[in-house]
């Protein structure tokens, strides 16, 4: 029993990070129909910039805020310089552009900072909390709370605010949104800034547990992508549940079957779900316009 509890707790921690990455995917996908493979680099930037700002003598909260703001700026730049000029390009080209962007960001980070592994202190110490015989790091609570808070905030933003509704309208029909006076360029800028900011937040929250280096992004992007697809692309609820499910699956496989095949289990389940539900768990069924 304590064993199972332990696996569930570590699964939820990892799952929260996947959920945050998947939420970032969802926002950009909704605004622009682009799956941004550079999403993992935002997480990496969040961690790296905090490490170096903190190392330069800034208090941790300030360093974290600076990291999130800079990363949001990187997201906006990515949209303006790479995504917007390629509007209307086929899916494959967009995949290559965003993967190119992720390699580029990694290359720059490695030059500006370094190739070492880094961490900074946990927010509330490293004394484990005991729950049903299992242990949990206080930092894990921060990560899980982060995912939930971001999800609720996004949900309120998309359903209760005019700006949020404008983003939804743009994703639904770009031209029609322009016709009713929505500035779709502003919507795109905002979406990329939010998405990058959320990614950076995930990086800030998880770095004390998993450490950060210039090359952690791509694995996170793949997992986040898988989580978003599992839940159904474009659906924030799907992203959240997909993320936690993926984390749990990995932790349980690692615990009970084989730690080497933990990633395999995740992808086998994703394949199985897509066979049965080609739109993911919560995806909308779409029909083609002829």
């Amino acid at each position: 029993m304590p064993e199972l509890m332990q696996f569930i707790l570590s699964g939820l921690t990892v799952g929260a990070v996947y959920a945050l990455v998947a939420l970032g995917f969802t926002i950009i996908y909704n605004a622009s129909d682009v799956v941004n493979f550079a999403q993992g680099e935002f997480v990496m930037l969040g961690g790296m910039i905090t490490v170096f700002a903190h190392g330069a003598g800034m208090p941790l909260p300030l360093a974290a805020v600076i990291a999130i703001v800079i990363t949001a700026g990187v997201g906006v730049a990515l949209n303006k310089l790479a995504i917007e000029p390629a509007r209307g390009a086929p899916v494959v080209s967009l995949i290559i552009i965003t993967i190119g962007a992720s390699i580029f960001i990694r290359g720059v980070t490695q030059l500006v900072f370094d190739k070492q592994l880094h961490r900074f202190p946990s927010f509330s110490g490293d004394d484990p909390i005991h729950i049903f015989g299992a242990t949990l790091l206080p930092q894990s609570l921060w990560v899980m709370a982060g995912a939930l808070v971001v999800f609720v905030a996004l949900w309120l933003f998309f359903t209760r605010t005019l700006t949020g509704k404008a983003i939804l309208a743009t994703s639904n029909n770009r031209l029609a949104a322009q016709l009713v006076g929505i500035s779709t360029n502003w919507v795109m800028t905002l979406s990329f800034a939010m998405s990058a900011g959320i990614g950076a937040l995930a990086g800030v929250l998880v770095t004390p547990i998993t450490l950060v280096s210039y090359d952690v992004g791509i694995a996170l992007a793949l997992k986040g992508f898988a989580a978003a697809m599992l839940g159904g692309m474009g659906n924030p609820k799907g992203a959240l549940i997909g993320g936690f499910l993926l984390g749990l699956l990995e932790a349980l496989t690692a615990g009970y079957i084989s730690s080497q095949y933990k990633d395999a289990a995740a992808f086998i389940v994703i394949l199985a779900v897509l066979f049965a539900m080609p739109q993911g768990l919560f995806g909308k069924k779409t029909t083609d316009r002829v």
Partner: peptide
């Protein structure tokens, strides 16, 4: 050497943007 990744990523993006 040091700039390899940066240049590689840049080439991928530029070709896809300007030579669709």
């Amino acid at each position: 050497a040091e700039y390899e990744m940066l240049l590689m990523g840049l080439v991928m993006m530029l070709v896809m943007i300007f030579m669709r």
